Computed example of a mutant assay.
Amino acid sequence: MSDDLLLHSHLIGRQGGRADLNTPVLVLDLAALDRNIAAMAAFVAARGVALRPHAKTHKSVDIAKRQVAAGAVGLCCAKIGEAEVLVDGGIAGVLITSPVAAPRAIERLAALAGRADRLMAVIDHPDVAARIDAALAAVGARLDIVVDIDPGIARTGVASADAAVDLARVVTGLPNLRYCGVQFYCGTQQHIEDYAERRSAIAERTVYLSGVIAALSGAGHPPAIVTGSGTGTHRIDLDLGVFTELQAGSYIFMDQQYLACDLTGDGTRPFETALGVDARVVSANHSALVTIDAGFKSLSTDGGVALVRSGAPEQAHFAFMGDEHAALVSPGIGDALGPGDPVTLTVPHCDPTVNLYDHYHVVADDMLVAIWPVGARGRAR
């Protein structure tokens, strides 16, 4: 039994049990989570587009099942390790959104294809396509393939429309691969805070995508699936009308990076903050500063700093103070708060923060209602 279960299982269902959690701890508001899942599902369904949410955000079979129950056609995974966890947890329609190229990883992909329902993977190089086809032949499996298109960041994906056509031709010529469509994920545009600026950037990239699709169609390889988008651009992409399915992921949690973005163009927030980290004051010996027990080991560092949600003044400045600690700085905070007092933080970037924890502590107000494993934590290969 993990430390989380040993420490906290007895608190499940106890009124006020959240206050007795050992901190720092990853907390998930169940009602807000379910409202976020329902809101995105309804919004996408109203446009006649499919939703395949990205599980790199939550890495959880429990959350994936709730998304499928709400209408998702499957889940996305960043790496094969995540996909193995979801598939073995009963999730169908998994798309691996990063190229699988290492020899051992290709063997695992072929094995997973043999036991998965509707598994898909992206490819961006003809040599890799041939290797995957050979691995599938060795185990007697087939695999649906999506051609990954570089949106301009040179991370993954074919670099031109001609290259997309050439790769689609290769895939259709291999007996164990089935060409299904294209992927186009504009990651750098997701966090442009101003709506008009973000829309302009995405519109320009969508013109390029439309050109690639036209080239594929003209060559006899029209994509049945056009997959991509994210939380930051989901409404814009639906308005532009090119994607057949969306891969949005962070909408279920809403971290500080996305809370800083105008997602709608009118300043309204379509999704609630469902994820947080509960921490405690461990030292309060200065009037304008208290120390809490959540440092680099408890929060991601790539998206700015955490914000106070409750338990301390919202304007308190958060500052990392090392692996184990952070400071909350505000006039008089050390007089108002004492050691042991609880504080809830909004996380800077949800995906890497979740990857720091073994479990979600699922709460309803002040009650702990469940402990869910972060089953795909650390599955980066």
Results as ranks from 00 to 15, higher is better:
residue 273 T to E: 07
residue 72 A to L: 11
residue 113 A to M: 06
residue 163 A to R: 07
residue 23 T to L: 01
residue 49 V to Y: 05
residue 260 A to L: 08
residue 270 P to Y: 01
residue 247 Q to N: 13
residue 78 A to C: 02
residue 294 A to K: 08
residue 271 F to K: 15
residue 204 E to A: 15
residue 142 R to H: 14
residue 38 A to V: 00
residue 92 A to R: 09
residue 46 A to L: 08
residue 287 S to C: 06
residue 29 D to Q: 09
residue 16 G to T: 08
residue 305 V to M: 07
residue 288 A to D: 15
residue 327 A to R: 07
residue 364 A to P: 01
residue 108 R to K: 13
residue 252 I to S: 04
residue 305 V to H: 13
residue 107 E to M: 09
residue 197 E to S: 15
residue 121 A to R: 11
residue 26 L to E: 03
residue 337 L to S: 04
residue 194 D to G: 12
residue 1 M to Y: 09
residue 180 C to R: 13
residue 236 I to D: 02
residue 296 F to I: 03
residue 160 S to T: 12
residue 261 C to V: 15
residue 325 H to E: 06
residue 192 I to K: 01
residue 83 A to M: 00
residue 143 L to W: 01
residue 119 L to N: 05
residue 30 L to Y: 06
residue 269 R to F: 08
residue 92 A to S: 12
residue 149 I to S: 02
residue 175 P to K: 13
residue 102 A to K: 15
residue 357 Y to W: 11
residue 352 P to H: 10
residue 295 G to C: 09
residue 246 L to E: 00
residue 48 G to N: 06
residue 336 A to H: 07
residue 75 L to D: 00
residue 315 Q to H: 12
residue 254 M to I: 15
residue 15 Q to F: 01
residue 276 G to C: 10
residue 223 P to S: 04
residue 181 G to Y: 04
residue 261 C to P: 12
residue 369 V to N: 05
residue 324 E to I: 00
residue 223 P to T: 05
residue 76 C to R: 03
residue 128 V to E: 06
residue 374 V to D: 09
residue 167 L to S: 03
residue 81 G to L: 05
residue 82 E to V: 00
residue 349 H to L: 14
residue 233 T to G: 01
residue 111 A to G: 04
residue 359 H to F: 12
residue 113 A to S: 14
residue 49 V to R: 12
residue 210 S to N: 09
residue 180 C to V: 13
residue 52 R to T: 13
residue 61 V to F: 05
residue 318 F to V: 08
residue 335 D to W: 04
residue 132 I to T: 10
residue 346 T to P: 01
residue 37 I to N: 02
residue 69 A to S: 11
residue 7 L to W: 13
residue 229 S to T: 08
residue 325 H to M: 00
residue 51 L to Q: 08
residue 37 I to P: 04
residue 214 A to H: 10
